[in-house]
Computed example of a mutant assay.
Amino acid sequence: MGCRAKMETRLFKKGTQVEACFDEPGIRGVWFTATVIRPPRRDKKVYLEFQTLLNEEGGSERLKERTTVLNIRPSPPREVHRTFKMNEEVEAFHDDGWWEGVITKVHDTDRFSVYFKVSKEELVFPACNLRLRREWVDGSWVPPFEEIDKSNMWRSKGSNMLKPKGPSKKYSSKSKIKFVKGMQVEISSDEEGYVGAWFVATFVKKVENKYIVEHKHFTTDDGTELLKEEVDVQHIRPLPPEILMVDHFKLLEEVDAWYNDAWWVGTISKVLDNSKYIVYFKNSKEEMKFEHSSLRLHQECVDGQWIRAPWVMFPSYSQF
């Protein structure tokens, strides 16, 4: 077995999450997340199960297909810093895949207009749905990743669920997490009305045992600059690793809902049609309706590692 064949077998072994593209018109160059069912053989084809594509419209069975290794690459690691500039080439998560585009307008620190060459459309995306465009060339990413969030590099076999590969030296405990200036973080508050919410912010500096952060969506009273706040170690954490929701959320699944410029912890209390859900918020004892795109799986940073429970049972659920 040649060196290249050995590398392909190692990269695309069974259970590995990868990205694959098609040569069909209209979706050429779009990358879709998939899991390897069977590694490459002599014909250089890999049998994949796609995470966001279905066999037929309106069906529930995921698409399974044999694809050449030339159209497959590893899933890119997640970057800690996500900043985008005018005319920068990016990939935007849209219509179940990562589409190549160009930043045409910076609306604020978290919203960007992207122009797609394939469809000749221009759409607005939050930063969390964008990533810098890179190519997988001879076993390396071009341009290379400068800083990678290692908490998202290991995944459980055959699944999108994160699985830490032993204790991380960088995140050995929450108090020892290394926050770097300019790093995107999330902060919480114990104030009445804000319990259960995580706000996106940028780390500025550490002063003794306090952390100075700058909010991404809130300004000072006069509106002239972004609001700065001082928090302790119990109320700051890195951005949670991304977990791609492949189809839909399930009843009683714990989620974060994007509302009023923050992520609020809640539970799916009812699954509606057209990818809509009713979410119950325990702290406020309220229910609200959300679209799939406004939800993410809830995760907790425990001892420096990200943990999530797929379902959470509440004694009061029968009262919904």
Rank of each mutant, 00 (worst) to 15 (best):
L227R: 02
K228P: 01
K228D: 04
E230V: 15
E230K: 15
E230R: 15
E230N: 14
E230S: 15
D232F: 15
V233C: 08
V233W: 11
Q234L: 15
H235M: 11
H235Y: 08
H235W: 06
H235N: 10
P238S: 05
P238N: 04
P238T: 04
L239A: 04
P240C: 09
P241Q: 05
P241K: 04
P241M: 03
P241G: 05
P241L: 06
E242P: 07
L244F: 08
V246L: 14
V246T: 09
D247H: 09
H248N: 10
H248Q: 15
H248P: 09
F249W: 07
K250H: 08
K250W: 11
K250P: 07
L252F: 14
E253S: 04
E253K: 04
E253Q: 08
E254F: 04
E254L: 05
E254G: 03
V255F: 01
V255W: 00
A257F: 02
W258M: 10
W258A: 07
Y259E: 11
Y259V: 14
N260A: 15
N260D: 14
D261C: 08
D261V: 10
W263I: 01
W263Y: 03
W263D: 00
W263E: 00
V265C: 08
V265E: 05
G266V: 01
G266P: 01
T267C: 02
T267L: 01
I268Y: 00
S269L: 03
S269T: 04
K270T: 10
L272T: 12
D273W: 14
N274S: 06
N274L: 07
N274C: 05
S275W: 09
K276H: 13
Y277P: 00
I278E: 07
V279A: 02
V279F: 01
V279M: 03
Y280D: 00
F281W: 02
F281V: 00
K282A: 06
N283V: 11
N283P: 12
N283Q: 11
N283W: 09
E286Y: 03
M288Y: 15
M288I: 12
K289H: 09
K289P: 12
K289G: 14
F290I: 04
S293G: 10
S294P: 08
S294Y: 13
R296Q: 06
H298W: 05
H298K: 07
H298L: 05
Q299S: 12
E300T: 12
C301I: 11
C301H: 04
V302K: 10
V302I: 09
D303G: 08
D303R: 05
D303Y: 12
G304I: 02
Q305L: 15
W306N: 02
A309W: 14
A309P: 09
P310K: 05
P310I: 09
